[in-house]
Write a protein that binds this DNA or RNA. Structure first.
Lengths: 203, 203
DNA sequence: GTCTATAGCTTGATAGAC
DNA sequence: GTCTATCAAGCTATAGAC
C-alpha cells in the first residue's frame, strides 16, 4: 500500500483491477512465465504505476494466492455433518464443478502452483488444508460407519472429487480439443452425479 | 544434431542425459520457468556444450513432448474391443495409475503445458489425441449398447480416468500434504478399481 | 498518482580457443 | 566435443519529473 491510511476508492479500484489482470496472466503463464509488463498492459496501467500499488511481482502473486485458498475451500466447509450424507456429498461435487465453470482462472492459478511443487503455499496446504480435510474425513467416516453411504477410502474420495471437477478448468483445452464444439459443462454435472451415486449408495 | 552422420554412442548418451535433465527441470518449473543453465547443471554439462547437442531451449522442449505424447497414449491404445468390457477398462485405469507412479515427471510436463493452454501441442491434441479417443469411445459405446457395461457419457468416462489417475502425479505435493506419511499409491489402486466397478457394472 | 527513462540483473545463444 | 568469455535481449524494479 502506498500509505498507511485507509485506501481511497481509487486505490481499492486499482488494486482490484491489478489483481484481476494478474490472475489472468499468472493463470495463463505461471509465475515465472508472467511478466509485470503483461499484467500492467492487461490492467491498462503503466508498469511503474502498477508497482506503486504492489511492491513487487512476488507480492501480487502472494496477494492472489492468499485470498484464494479460503474461497477455494468454501464448498468443502459447507459439507454439513447434520445433512443427508449422499446428498451432502453430491451437493459438494456440484458446487465444486460450478466453481470450475465460473472461476477457471483461479483453478489454473492453483494448478500451476501445485504442479510445480507448491513452493509458495506448501505451508498452507500442510496446515489449513490438512486440518479442514481431516475434519471432513471424520464426518464421512462416521457416515460410513453408520452404513449411510458405502465404505470407500475417504481421502481418495475427496481427491477424486477435486481431480474430476478441477479437470474441466485446468485441462480445458484438452477437453475441448477432444469433445469438439459441444460444451463439456452441459453434460459433466449429470456424469459426476451418477458417478458418486453409484459409488456411494449403500449396498 | 551436430552432424548429418548417424550419432555416435557418446552423442546418443549425451542427448539422452540432456533430455532426462530437461524433463526434470521443465516438469518442475514449466517451459518459461526453466533455464538452460539449470538443465545444463542437472545434466552435468556446460551451457554451450548442451547447446551443441540441441539448437535451442525450445528444441529440447519440443523433442521431449514429441516423444512423450505417443508413450502417454499407449495405455489407451491397448484397450481391446475384443476383450471383456469391464475388465478392459479396469486394466486401462490400472495401467494409467501405474504410469503416474512410474513417470510423474512426464505427467507434470504435460500438465504444465496443458494448464497453460497447450501452446506447443494443441495441434497434436486436436488430431492424434482426438482420433484415438473417438475410436475408443466408439468401442465403449458398442459395449454400452450391448448392455455389457452401464451407460454413462463415454467422453466424460475417459476424462474421469485421466483426471483421477494423473492427479496422483500432478498434484502429488497436495495429496501428500493432506495424507501425511502414508503412500497414496498403496491405497489408490483399490479405490479407483472400486469406483469403476460400481460405476460401470451392468444394472 | 502517474508517467518516461534507465539502472542492474538474468537469460538464451554465440565466438573462438583448445 | 568441450570449455571460458561475452553479447544482445528481456526482465524487475527504481529514480525523478510532472
Amino acid at each position: 500500500m502506498a500509505q498507511d491510511r485507509a485506501p481511497t476508492r481509487i486505490q481499492k479500484k486499482n488494486r482490484a483491477t491489478i489483481l484481476d489482470a494478474a490472475l489472468e496472466v499468472f493463470a495463463a503463464h505461471g509465475f515465472r512465465g508472467a511478466t509485470v509488463d503483461q499484467i500492467a498492459a492487461q490492467a491498462g496501467l503503466s508498469k511503474p504505476n502498477l508497482l506503486y500499488y504492489f511492491p513487487s511481482k512476488e507480492a501480487i502473486h502472494a496477494a492472489l494466492l492468499e485470498g484464494l485458498l479460503d474461497t477455494w475451500l468454501d464448498p468443502l466447509r459447507d459439507l454439513d455433518a447434520q445433512g443427508e450424507p449422499l446428498e451432502e456429498i453430491i451437493a459438494y461435487v456440484r458446487r465444486k464443478l460450478q466453481m470450475s465453470r465460473e472461476f477457471p482462472r483461479e483453478s489454473r492459478l492453483f494448478a500451476n502452483e501445485i504442479v510445480q511443487g507448491a513452493p509458495r503455499i506448501q505451508d498452507a496446504l500442510r496446515h489449513d488444508l490438512k486440518i479442514l480435510v481431516d475434519e471432513k474425513v471424520a464426518v464421512i467416516e462416521t457416515w460410513m460407519a453408520e452404513g449411510r453411504i458405502a465404505r470407500v477410502h475417504p481421502y481418495h474420495l475427496i481427491f477424486s472429487i477435486w481431480s474430476l471437477t478441477q479437470h474441466y478448468a485446468d485441462f480445458d483445452v484438452q477437453v475441448r480439443a477432444v469433445m469438439g464444439p459441444e460444451d463439456p459443462f452441459n453434460s459433466a454435472p449429470e456424469f459426476v452425479e451418477t458417478l458418486y451415486r453409484r459409488l456411494l449408495s449403500p449396498a
